[in-house]
Simulated scan of single mutants.
Amino acid sequence: MNSIHLIMTALSLLFCFHPAAGKTAEEATRDRVLEPGNAIQGKPYPAYHPDSESERTWDHALPFLGQRALDRGFSLPLPYGVSLIFFHQNQGFSIESMEVAFRKDVPYKNIDFIDFSGAKVDNTSWQTKLDAWIFPFLNAFVTLGSVKGTGTVPISIAKADLYDFFTPNLCSGGSPPAFCEGYFSAVAPIDYNGYNYGLGLLLASGYKDWFFAAPITYVITNVNVSEDNITAFSFIPRVGYNYRTPRSGKFGFYAGANYLNTKVNLTGHYELPLAGDPNVGENVTVRYRMSQQPLDVWNALAGINWELSSEWSAVLEVGFSENKENQTLNVNYRF
């Protein structure tokens, strides 16, 4: 609540800002571009141009205080939007806790002798987003989409621990047999699909050709490899600059960071080929249930917003860190 109050206070100060009079030829040309008939304002961020002296009328119900924002020099995007979003991500994750069962007819058991280091997931998602500007600096939106992906979970089990699981004390004596040394290693695949839905807020503002935006999103995902819903909270502050062209619209270049906090419970199974091992004598189905978190909670991002008209815009964004990479393509229509 305090953060939102500070933002509202800052924006109210911007509304009351009156710059010195006088324009260069370049500024006058820019103001003509901002006239309603020539405006290219499809991007989802308000822009502040205090030198504009044209009288404009805001004839939409939203956002609240829209006319006041225009009177103070802001150029507002159209109030409502619908977006189609494609998202791809590849990331590593760490295992926080794990349970396994070595047969289908036995319950899960907490263990600590299996190493899952190097686990990764690769997923794609298609999303539909509906949004509306509630205030000139505040956008609200909802999302609905599908998700699918694959992953790999490297499994490394000490032979001594596995033998002792099937035959207690077989390898835990003072002088264990030679076959107790070493590890059983395998790579368990993950194949999942499901759907998600979420809601969020976007805090944004701009000054001349600079803009700032910070979406906050809460998403719930249901997938076939998790007994519980997956919840995720993200915060993505970014700052950018708009470059205007005479005929090709406006290009907004921006950079920022992505904070993603999520905790996932996954279930799966993998069959260890141990039928030829004299101490086990059968293939072992390892059923696992784990709680995992991404290795990188933060990653950097950069993107470009192409504002073709007041109605149409498209965003291409890439994110990167040591253990996470993602790409986003967003096509937006405003009305």
Rank of each mutant, 00 (worst) to 15 (best):
M8T: 14
T9N: 13
L11R: 13
F15H: 08
A21E: 12
A28W: 07
R32W: 12
L34P: 01
P36D: 06
P36Q: 05
I40P: 00
G42N: 03
S52L: 07
F64M: 12
L70G: 00
F74K: 01
S75L: 09
P79K: 00
G81H: 03
Q89R: 12
G92R: 09
E96W: 07
S97A: 10
M98G: 05
A101Q: 04
K104Y: 15
P107C: 04
K109G: 09
I111P: 02
I114S: 04
I114Y: 02
S117E: 14
K120G: 06
N123L: 12
S125D: 07
Q127T: 14
K129P: 03
L130S: 10
D131I: 07
W133E: 03
I134K: 03
F141R: 02
F141L: 03
G145N: 02
V147G: 02
V147L: 09
V153M: 10
V153I: 13
I155Q: 00
S156M: 06
Y163Q: 01
S172H: 08
S175N: 13
S185G: 08
Y197W: 13
L199N: 12
L199H: 11
L199Q: 14
G200W: 00
L201D: 00
L201V: 09
L201R: 01
L203C: 07
S205N: 07
G206M: 02
G206H: 00
F211S: 00
A213V: 04
V219T: 14
I220A: 09
T221H: 01
A232M: 11
I236Y: 06
G240T: 01
Y241K: 08
N242E: 10
P246D: 13
G249E: 01
G249Q: 05
G256Y: 06
Y259F: 15
N261A: 15
N265F: 11
L266E: 04
E271K: 13
L272F: 09
P273W: 10
G276T: 15
D277H: 11
V280N: 05
V280H: 05
G281E: 10
G281A: 08
V284L: 03
Y288H: 05
M290F: 08
Q293D: 10
L295K: 14
N299P: 08
L308C: 15
S309T: 12
S309V: 04
E311L: 06
A314P: 02
G319E: 01
N326L: 11
Q327C: 14
L329H: 10
N330T: 12
V331I: 13
V331F: 12
